[in-house]
Design a protein around this nucleic acid. Structure first.
Lengths: 152, 152
DNA sequence: TGCAACTGGTTTCATATGTAACTATAACGT
DNA sequence: ACGTTATAGTTACATATGAAACCAGTTGCA
């Protein structure tokens, strides 16, 4: 691979610079999805991520949600405040540890999930359809490799 | 490809959801780089991007910088305010169009660039080194394909 | 016990970011 | 020429985000 065409101090060509390209692509994709559910449910990306993880793992504490979503606990706390207020997430106190909360989707929360999850999947499918089978396979493999180490 | 394992309404598995994975990876990578130059020069990512594009294209206007960096004009305006203030970017008025500014790196700006550009490249190289030649080739190809359409 | 260190979660504050309104200049159509 | 419309850039406001301080409640251990 030709990484050495340019001396180190030469101006960066952003459009060929991998971190920049990743950032642009990622933002475009996430934003496109978020726009959808933001418009329909006034749901932010962080809030949706919390709901998505509670849909899979019922009864988590806020800290566990933070771990699963890779969000920090402040962000989770705020998202939860809004979600509980909206009546989409239920919050109880853990027996035996009054610090911990026990979270889950409410009926209404599940109803939202039933709409948003398919939307999100459709966007993903839409994206993957631009690639052929071989490319999709490589992409997953490359992401696996890059992520194996990066999360310090 | 197995996209149909899950009914559409089943809970999303974030860790396999492409947009989420891209977002996590991209943030980790960009943040790692930004941390470096933030600490050393109190330079934000947006500010660095402006400097990077001015290093390549001297004399751009603010709007042109915005186009090149895909940032919106407000973000560029703010970045420029700080960069000019810091003495790293020079700003003059275009002859013949007093609305337009004519931007460029100052001596000091170039000095910063000489340090940051290699840092950024090193991070990129570090990332690419986790892949073999074949994977790198596919990655570029996949990014090209995904980006060809996404930028609506 | 009882107190020091720790953990779950929230609040506060300072900063960043996006949207819309605004100012100044330039271009266009008559 | 001259008013309308468009463009470059900044400012204001409202919201989002991150870091650190904070308040319980819990654990460890003398």
């Amino acid at each position: 691979m030709s990484v050495e065409h340019h001396p180190d101090h030469a101006p960066l060509e952003l459009e060929h610079f991998l971190p920049y390209r990743l950032s642009i692509l990622s933002n475009a994709v996430s934003q496109a999805i978020a726009d959808d559910y933001q418009r329909r449910f006034d749901l932010s990306m962080t809030e949706w991520r919390v709901m998505a993880v509670l849909a899979r793992f019922d009864g988590l504490s806020a800290r566990e949600v933070a771990e699963r979503t890779l969000m920090d606990k402040v962000a989770v706390s705020r998202a939860l405040a809004k979600l509980v207020e909206a009546g989409w997430v239920t919050r109880a106190t853990h027996d035996g540890d009054k610090r911990r909360s026990v979270l889950g989707l409410s009926e209404a929360g599940w109803a939202i999930h039933e709409v948003v999850a398919p939307m999100a999947r459709a966007h993903e499918r839409n994206l993957l359809e631009k690639l052929d089978d071989e490319e999709r396979t490589w992409l997953v493999r490359i992401l696996d490799k890059l992520q194996a180490i990066e999360p310090k």
